[in-house]
Nucleic acid binder design. Structure first.
Lengths: 185, 185
DNA sequence: ACCTGAACACCGTTCAAGT
DNA sequence: ACCTGAACACCGTTCAAGT
């Protein structure tokens, strides 16, 4: 309940409106009552970050082309992040998320990479590069709320920014695939 | 003077210690006296972000291999960001920096890309991808100060993280170069 | 131009106590 | 288990006034 209210507050009024006191107000409760449900504000934010990741489309790690699987996953992640622009800086500050959803995504990535012949330290490197790329791109795609006015009337074409993301994602995947089979010999 | 004191405070005690009131204390002045020198805390932070970028190594945009030039620039940017871990989330939140140093870096990047045959919208895309990559990588390379204790005794090998950065930078540059001459025909 | 005292409208969090 | 009143130790910023 607290988590849901926090997400509503965030969606409606943005990051700086997400305040323990505002949250308490919305729940019609005294501010300190929240501490019966949440250890700290940072823990609450961590919960939000992981919860949002539940919407990411996860392919079956054992079926289909591994590169296509990674492409699907990362594109879905990018889209989910774009839907939550206020959270993007937080993902970066926290370096991803720590909850069960994040962990599952990480494991699927490693499975796909393993099927592509990328294992060990290289797999961790590739994983990190892909995550950095998805979150970083979202950070730069996101229009920062200068005035916080209309929805999508202003700003440069969003479709183009998504294409930019997908193109550089291709570069990364190509590079990762090349790492897997250095000489193809 | 205010800028310098703010940077010292940041270097010594971290981001959350950078407070208008703490800054005033350090300058032995009343908190509101700062507002004779700085419009707002955010403006001060913007000044810091741009000032730090003065340390980035900028190649002569008209000499040498353009890819090598970009590689030098982005690697230098990465190193500068690693030296200021507390600021990295802020660069991401603000999507880079806005001051004269940032502008100059952006122009040099575009010059190098132009010499590589990358112009127009593609140049903007490539520029964005490179910046995202440098800042995003720094964000994930940075060890977040869990306790804020010793300098570099703990954590995974930093040299390896830098190699990871350089490898994925190569992927991006290769992809950008391929964009420039689609068929090489 | 630069500073001060006082104040405003907030924060996150803790503590002791109640049901 | 969940809530409350009261308080602590802070924030950024403004206003009127002083030099």
């Amino acid at each position: 309940m607290v988590l849901a209210a926090a997400q509503e507050l965030l969606a409606e009024d943005g990051l700086e409106a997400l305040t323990m006191r505002a949250l308490a107000r919305r729940l019609e409760v005294a501010p300190n009552a929240l501490y019966s449900h949440v250890a700290t504000k940072m823990a609450l934010v961590d919960d939000i970050l992981d919860d949002v990741l539940a919407a990411v489309e996860v392919p079956d790690p054992d079926r289909g082309d591994w590169q296509a699987g990674l492409r699907t996953m990362m594109a879905s992640t990018h889209r989910v992040l774009l839907a939550h622009p206020d959270l993007v800086p937080l993902y970066l500050a926290r370096q991803g998320a720590r909850g069960p959803n994040a962990q599952r995504l990480g494991e699927v990535m490693l499975s796909l990479l393993r099927r592509g012949g990328v294992t060990g330290p290289s797999a961790r490197e590739a994983q990190r590069a892909l995550i950095v790329h998805a979150i970083g791109s979202a950070a730069f795609t996101t229009r920062r709320p200068l005035e916080r006015g209309q929805g999508d009337a202003d700003g440069p074409p969003r479709a183009e920014l998504i294409r930019t993301f997908e193109r550089s994602l291709s570069w990364l995947l190509a590079g990762i695939a090349a790492t897997a089979k250095p000489g193809k010999a």
